[in-house]
Structure formats: C-alpha cells, structure tokens
Design a protein around this nucleic acid. Structure first.
Length: 649
RNA sequence: GCCGAUGUAGCUCAGUUGGUCAGAGCAGCUGAUUUGUAAUCAGCAGGCCGUGGGUUCGACUCCCUCCAUCGGCUCCA
C-alpha cells in the first residue's frame, strides 16, 4: 500500500500501482471520466500511469491548464498520425501545445501540398482515429533504441532532437499505429477527443532559425465536447469584431494607402483627436514629474547613428540614407530619439546639481520593418514614441526608475489595462555578440532593473535575449483581442550611450562624471497604444478620451434649431458635442450613433423644446430620462473626474 | 524577408464547368416623408472584377509576374 496526499492535505492509502484515474474513480465516477492528467509530486503524469510510491497528487481535467496541455499535446500526436496517413513519408518536427490548441511542424514529402482545402479531411481523420479509442502507451527507451527507430523512419528532425537528449530520460508514446518521441504526459486514450478543428497553416523555420529549412506548421484545436468547439469559434468571431483594423475603419480613426506606402498610417480627424488627447494627458503627468519638453528633427546626420551604434546594428536593414547635393553627405530618417537627446544634453556643461534632467518628446521615428511583420497600427514603419530620456547620477538611478514605473502603472490604471504582464528583458545567455558595451555596465544595468522591480513588489518574468542592443529593459506587455502579446510601455537602463556620446557632468568633487540614461516610453508608441486601446474597449473609449462625447438628435428637422442650441450650450460646458441633422427617423439616428460608439445621445423634440430639457440616452445602456442640460453637464464632468484624478498617482 | 491564403462599387459580400454575370445590401446623391429611443419609402449614380503579361475564338473565372492585405515564422533600436 502507498499513501497518496491530496491537495487539501488529506491522505489516503491505495494499492501500489494505482493510477490517477483509479484515484479519481474512488472519488467520483464523473471526475474519473474527466481526469486527463495528474501531478505526482512535482511532475505532471499520464492519468493512467501507475504510481508506485507515496506521493502528493493533484488531478487535472480539461478545465485546468495542465489538463489542456495533456489533451492538446495528445491531439497533436493524433493529428500527426492523420497527416502520416495522407502524406506517407512526411517528416515530423515538434508538436507542442499553445495557449489555444496545438501545432505540429512537418516537412511534407517532395511535391506534396497542404492547403485550407485539406483541413476538412484531416479533421475527419483525427475524429476517426480518436473514435478508435486507442490508449496512449508510454515506453522508456534507450537513446540507442530511439536513434534506431527514427533512423529507420528516416526522420532527421527527430534524430536531431534525440541527439540533444540524455540517455535514460527518453520516452516514446504510442497510440494506434503511431509512435512519437515524447516526454508526455498524455490523456488515457484517444476517445476523449470529440471535436477537432484545423485552424491554419504557416511556414515555420526548423528550431526557429531563419537559416534552417522552413517547415509547414499546422495549427489545430480539439475539445472533449463538440459544444466547446463551437463556443470557441464563436468567441474567435467576437474577438475579430474588436480588431483595431476593422474598428479603425468603421470609426474613422486611421487609414493606410499603398500610395503613401505600406506601414505608414494616417490619422483621420477622429483618430487624431483621440491621439492628441492621450498625448496631452501624458504631457500633464510628465510635467508633474519634472520632465522638460524638447523637439528634435526627423532626420539626423549618418554620423550621429554611427556614434550611437544604431548604424552598425541596423543601417543595412533601415530606410536608406538621404543624400544631399553635398558630395558624401548622408542623412538618415531617425529611428530613435535618444541620439538627438544626448546631443541636447551635450549642448552645454551640466552640473551634478542639474541632475536628473528629463527630456521628453513625442518623437516620430521611422524603421524599415520587414514587410511580413507589418500589422495594422501595432507594427508600422513610421510611428511616434512617447519618448523621454532621463540623465541622472548613478546614485539617482533607482529612484528615477521607480518614478517611471509609477507613471506607467498610473497610465495603465487610468486606462483600465489591468491584464498586463511585466517582463525583464535581458541579454541572450549564449550570444553576447549582439550587444554593445562592457560586461560591467550590462551587469549594473540589469541589476538596477531587477532591484527596482523587487522594490516595487511587482511580478515580472525574466526573458533572455529580449534586451535592446545597448541595454536591458523592463517591458509592459498587453494582449490584443486575439491574444497576441504586444510590448507597450518600456523602461530601459543604459550605461552605453552616455559613454559613446561622452556625456559628462561636473560632480561635487569638481571632476567630470558620466551620467546614466533611462530611456522610457509609457505608451510605447501612440500607434500601438491606440491599437490596443481600441481592442480593449471595442471602440467604446473612456468619456474623457473619446472624440465626441455626445450627439444631439432632433426628433425631426423641426427641432434642428433647438438641437443646435443644446449642442452649443453643452460646448460651453466643455462637452464635445455635435448635432445629427440628417433627415432620418430617430431610430435610425440612434442606431448609427450607437454604432459610432458615441457615449451619450441627447434626444430632443417637441416636449424637450417646450420644457427646455434634454432626453439622455447612454451608449449601450439606453434611456436615462429627461434632465436639464446643466445637470447632464455635471453628470458628465463627474464621470470624467472619477477616472482622471491626477493626484492619485 | 520566408511559408500559406486572399484581392469584384466607399463598406460587407454574390458571381455555377471560361460564353449577355458585371450583381445585391448598406453608405452616397435626388425626391417624398417630419418622424419619440438600434435600419421610412422611391429613384439615381457608382466597378481598368488589385496590376502587368500569357493561354483561348472568347477570361472576373485558367497560368505566370508584381502590388497590397490576412494568418503564422523570423525580426522588432
């Protein structure tokens, strides 16, 4: 007998060799049907793998992340089995789970193609194989055995994977006629899978390296219930409705033109107003934090970027140099504001008493992003950073860093970005050649960020290889409607540029010292921030930000004059208002303005004109009843004040 | 940049095996209507069927080039 400890601390005895499934069965029949994997001490196991010694266990169903992982990973194996059926000779790369579903990277046989048209038959095959109710059988194999199996199969990708594994840790899983190298865990048998959908296909480089062969990545998702699949697909459709590219068009916020150039967004009046309001909001916050505005040109002499190191790093892959009538003279579109700001710092002698100096600029920069990378407003070739550079003494670094974090967190709070993650972006562990600057400076910069994060007590994940080439960063990541992660706010510690630009200040000891720089952008870029804001709010912007706060709708043209009077009155109360004078029925006007996400609709007709009142309707909520323009104005102001309290920083 | 898909009116989409197939709804314009909380009616106008080439008696439809967009990969100062 062995002792099994449950998550609540309860301990029960079972026969040695008991499985997670058996244990679930001993609790309830329903649970036994749903359990797909089990955590045994620190490892997640197959629910059907015998446990032979005392252990702490936790049972997982599809509702748990661990359960989904086992479920989808098993599904990837079945999909691979299906693909082998349709494409004999197919070679398999890796087939992991992702947040929603799984994929398998495959190398199709010479001449074979896989397109959307093939999805249906693959889905059907997956379900057919699932119905065979094949168990997932785990076997431990020696490295030699493993190598032989895949040498015989002629799968060089698996061989490459096995070569990196340690003998004695290698396991195979088999279901039906299909065997795969796999660590597991897997679901007990294939019949758990009741619904399957191939989502899309894409090219993916083997092991993520551009120099390697590009394999075909097949994305799919499966569920234990048909209904869950249809719900998931519906949810996807809903998410697509929030896509900022779609809403940007519908709400007249921004546009692109291939004539202007790809990845070069143009802000339309409503979008420009929204952006301007965001900028003014941040300007006010920054003013309170002691930032000083600066303005720099859109181009800079090539030498500027040679000095900064940007030219060596990105010169070849950037917009190419602008030439002048002067032989040999070259200018570049600025890809960064920092070199300019460094030159402003250098413009006159600085004393330790002046520091910290904080230069802020909404600086528009141009970067030649790869064509396949462009994506609405989130990835563009011309964008405006809410940039600032703080030049401080080393002893001021931590305090300044913390203050910047306060700004970012305040902004996220005001805009209700609650679901963000924080990432410490560090150097690549293996490849240091991508970075400039001394080991010592990097270590100082990296530890400064880690210390600041610890002090602030926020949770952050360290990501290696994500640092900028001149320094580590603290990045604030937010997801879009479809769950893609984007970096918004960023704070970077930089010892390198001050060195390259030979920045100095006179210390109290009357000798020259080198300042430390903090690069920071709470929004990141106006374009990307607005994109994410659109997706988070589905276009229903906060009242203080939205281009028009209310629209006055006359019941008929007879009340246009009164409507204009009301609108003017509201404008006098600093409420952004306009009149919908179209000769349409009130229902139509309400519909159109609701679709434009105007927060308040003011309806005026005979009654209102006689009583000198307005009927207020709130977007998404409906009729709020009749009131005076004054009390409406007060209501709006209060709603805004609730959100925009600057002293709550 | 790479893999795959898509590209018909301002928007959303129809268009059968290549042969009166250039269509609809919304938006726009004109007129009627003067409207009470999510689409009033009628008429009109609107398209090098992304671009350039090719196959064919004939191409929106088949093939190729390029451009742009979408989903990924790689990249992201």
């Amino acid at each position: 007998m062995i002792n099994i400890t449950f998550p609540d601390g309860a301990i029960k005895s079972y026969e040695s060799g008991v499985t997670g499934l058996d244990i679930a069965q001993s609790i309830s029949h329903k649970l036994a049907k749903e359990v797909v994997s089990v955590k045994v001490d620190d490892q997640v196991w197959d629910a059907h793998r015998p446990i032979v010694k005392d252990a702490k266990i936790q049972l997982f169903t599809f509702d748990d992340r661990e359960g989904k992982d086992a479920f989808w990973h098993s599904s990837a194996h079945i999909m691979a089995e299906a693909l082998e059926f349709f494409y004999p000779g197919i070679k398999l790369g890796i087939g992991p789970t992702v947040e929603n579903g799984f994929y398998y990277d495959v190398d199709l046989p010479e001449g074979a193609t896989l397109t959307d048209a093939d999805f249906k038959k693959i889905e059907d095959k997956i379900l057919e194989l699932s119905r065979q109710n094949n168990p997932f059988i785990r076997t431990e194999v020696s490295k030699e055995q493993a190598l032989k199996t895949f040498t015989d199969k002629g799968d060089e990708y698996k061989l490459e994977l096995i070569k990196d594994l340690e003998d004695g840790t290698i396991t195979f899983y088999q279901q039906g006629q299909f065997t795969d190298l796999c660590r597991g865990p897997h679901i007990p048998n294939t019949a758990y899978i009741k619904a399957a959908k191939i989502l899309n296909i894409a090219g993916a480089y083997w092991r993520g390296n551009e120099k390697n062969k590009q394999l075909t990545r097949v994305y799919g998702i499966t569920f234990p219930k048909q209904k869950m699949l249809s719900e998931y697909l519906e949810q996807l459709e809903e998410a697509k409705k929030r896509d900022h590219r779609k809403l940007g068009k519908e709400l007249d916020l921004f546009t692109f033109s291939s004539r202007v150039g790809m990845g070069l967004p143009m802000w339309m009046p409503r979008g420009a107003q929204l952006r301007e309001r965001l900028e003014n909001f941040l300007k006010k916050v920054q003013k309170d934090f002691g930032y000083l505005p600066v303005i720099t040109p859109h181009i800079g002499n090539k030498d500027l970027y040679v000095t900064s190191g940007h030219y060596a790093k990105y010169g070849a892959d950037s917009f190419q140099a602008i030439h002048t009538p002067q032989e040999g003279e070259e200018y570049l579109l600025k890809p960064m504001n920092c070199p300019h700001h460094c030159e402003i710092f250098k413009a006159r002698p600085r004393s330790y008493k002046d520091l910290p100096i904080r230069f802020a600029e909404f600086g528009t920069v141009y970067r030649y992003e790869q064509s396949g990378e462009l994506h609405g407003l989130t990835r563009v070739r011309g964008f405006t950073q809410d940039d600032a550079h703080i030049f401080c003494r080393p002893d001021q670094l931590k305090e300044e860093f913390l203050k910047v974090m306060d700004i970012v967190l305040y902004i996220f709070r005001v805009l209700k970005f609650e679901d963000f993650s924080t990432q410490i972006s560090l150097r690549d562990k293996d490849d240091r050649s991508k970075y400039i600057g001394s080991e010592e400076n990097w270590e100082k910069a990296e530890s400064a960020i880690v210390e600041a994060v610890n002090e602030k007590g926020i949770e952050a994940v360290a990501e290696y290889g994500e640092a900028a080439f001149y320094g580590p960063k603290l990045d604030f990541m937010v997801k879009d409607a479809l769950g893609r992660k984007w970096q918004l706010g960023t704070i970077q510690v930089d010892y390198n540029l001050p060195e390259r630009f030979e920045l100095e200040y006179k210390g109290a000891d009357n000798s020259m010292h080198r300042p430390v720089m903090i690069h920071r952008a709470p929004f990141g870029s106006m374009e990307r921030f607005v994109a994410v804001l659109i997706e988070h709010t589905a276009g229903k912007f906060p009242l203080w930000l939205t281009p028009e706060q209310c629209v006055v709708l006359p019941i008929s043209e007879k009340y246009n004059e009164y409507a204009k009077k009301v609108s003017n009155l509201l404008e006098n109360y600093d409420i952004r208002s306009f009149v919908d004078e179209r000769n349409e029925k009130i229902g139509k006007k309400i519909r159109d303005n609701e679709l434009m996400r105007i927060p308040y609709l003011i309806i005026v007709g005979e009654k209102e004109e006689n009583d000198q009142t307005i009927a207020v309707r709130k977007q998404g909520e409906g009729d709020l009843g009749v009131m005076s323009a004054e009390s409406f104005a007060k209501m709006v102001q209060e709603e805004i004040d609730k959100v925009l309290v600057f002293n709550q920083i």
